[in-house]
Design a protein around this nucleic acid. Structure first.
Length: 433
RNA sequence: GUGGUUGUAGUUCAGUUGGUUAGAACAUCAGAUUGUGGUUCUGAGGGUCGUGGGUUCGAGUCCCAUCAUCCACCCCA
């Protein structure tokens, strides 16, 4: 949970709407009085344009009322609260500061495929360093993670400075957000759709014309960079962006990636208000999957801490979307069976005496580092206990009855092969190590 | 915020022009099998048909409202 004021205004107008607000605890109306702003202007009575009748302007009241009854909100992401944390603890932190954080965040959005009201983000950030090596390390981290998960991905990289340069060069510097939002939709609505949207949002025809070679351009990352260099020749910030991208691609290339692919995607905007340099987005790049949503994103922010009173603190970070990644792994059946097999050895017994006999053995097995359990219901039938082991994919079972207690030679069964042999507990532990 | 979809057993779904006691599969539980799991066979339990109202002799079925759900738009910070 965060103070509402910490979150508001950080994610743009749309973001403000999507923050889950929380009513004040206790009497949440206690701070509402006749002196409250909501009462001013005679309850904000307005004429309804449709009916011509007078009515209370509930929208206005709602807006005025909100600050009085809600001071807290659910985290919208992990990055802004992280920036707040860094500012508050700036004297205790040595920079550059690295941290990871895995926690749920909330959106008051209407849920749909791949979009949840509550979902887990896994953030990794480095703050307090301008070095582009951090960008490279994050790319390597993404490669490591998705390689380990066995998922083919495309890491798309862009740079906010290039987007600024483009807006500058086509003479629509102030319309950068409109332009990037529109270009971002290129693969979805096509070139004509993008142009239409730009036009509707007041971008001049001349500017749109200048933009055409850019959205039509195709080629390798190196070709794109060359193309951009000529296009953005007059833009200082644009050239800076190219320089940064060149370093990142060159260094990533030199260090080598295991399985992930990287590409420069000029249309990548990620609408994020606070990104100032690199922008990352990861999409599934696997012929077996239909998944089109991004599963990881991030970028560099130069002044996120500035909002909370600590200027000149640049950071860069990424956020893995745990739920979407889970969805993809589920779709592709990439969860190994061993994930659900937490218990390695199950003691099957024939009664309370046997169960009691097993308890010290259980401790010994556990101390040896083997996950084990005794079936808790001492009177359960053997079929039941074996069925439990089977369902849980427990690979080994020890069966203990009167004979075993006498001899110390326990029936050790391999559930996969069905083979069974008589062994002492020490021999069993040895087998499982 | 806008448009649409679907709400029936634990799950996935049938359910005729409105008509007797709302079905199936899978899952669960029990038995076949008293020291051995998966397969098979037999049986059993499990439903306020999302909720509230209305029409009707009669509503799972038709109408209205409401809640939830999923999909798309907007947006994706």
């Amino acid at each position: 949970m965060e103070n509402l004021s910490t979150l508001m205004g950080k994610y743009g107008d749309e973001g403000d709407k999507l923050i889950f607000k929380i009513l004040n605890s206790g009497n949440f109306m206690s701070s509402v009085s006749p002196e409250s702003p909501m009462y001013k202007g005679n309850f904000n009575v307005v004429r309804d344009p449709n009916t011509g009748l007078m009515k209370v302007d509930t929208e206005k009241i709602s807006k005025d009322l909100l600050p009085a009854i809600s001071e807290k909100a659910l985290r919208y992401d992990l990055t802004v609260p992280f920036a707040r944390y860094v500012v508050q603890h700036q004297n205790e932190i040595s920079f550059p500061f690295k941290r990871y954080q895995i926690q749920p965040v909330w959106r008051a959005d209407r849920p749909q495929k791949g979009r949840y009201r509550e979902f887990y983000q896994c953030d990794a950030d480095v703050i307090g360093s301008n070095s582009l090596l951090n960008e490279v390390e994050l790319v390597q981290m993404m490669d490591d993670v998705f390689t380990a998960l066995g998922l083919g991905v495309m890491i798309k990289i862009n740079n906010r400075k290039i987007l600024s340069g483009i807006a500058e060069v086509i003479g629509e510097k102030e319309k950068i957000v409109t332009i990037t939002v529109a270009i971002d939709k290129l693969d979805k609505i096509g070139k004509d759709g993008v142009n239409k949207e730009l036009q509707e949002n007041g971008v001049s025809d001349a500017a749109i014309q200048k933009l055409q070679p850019l959205i039509e351009f195709t080629g390798s990352t190196a070709e794109k960079l060359n193309f951009l260099r000529s296009l953005l020749a007059s833009s200082e910030i644009g050239l800076k962006g190219i320089e940064e991208l060149e370093y990142v691609f060159k260094t990533v290339d030199a260090s080598g990636l295991s399985t992930a692919n990287v590409e420069l995607d000029i249309t990548l905007a990620r609408g994020l208000n606070y990104y100032t340099g690199a922008i990352f987005e990861v999409k599934v790049n696997d012929s077996r999957s239909e998944f089109t949503s991004s599963i990881t994103g991030g970028g560099r922010y130069d002044d996120l801490t500035g909002i909370f009173g600590l200027p000149n603190m640049s950071g860069v970070g990424i956020s893995f979307g745990a739920d979407r990644i889970y969805d993809v792994l589920l779709e592709l059946n990439l969860f190994p069976e061993s994930v659900t097999a937490s218990t390695k050895l199950l003691f099957v017994t024939f009664g309370e005496a046997e169960q009691t006999y097993c308890l010290p053995l259980l401790s010994r097995v556990r101390k040896a580092g083997v996950n084990a359990e005794v079936y808790p219901d001492a009177n359960a039938k053997m079929k039941k206990q074996m069925g439990y082991a089977d369902d849980k994919k427990v690979p080994f079972v020890v069966i203990v009855g009167g004979d075993e207690m006498q001899s110390g030679q326990l029936a050790f069964k391999n559930m996969t092969s069905g083979e069974q042999e008589k062994l002492t507990i020490d021999q069993i532990i040895e087998r499982l190590m």
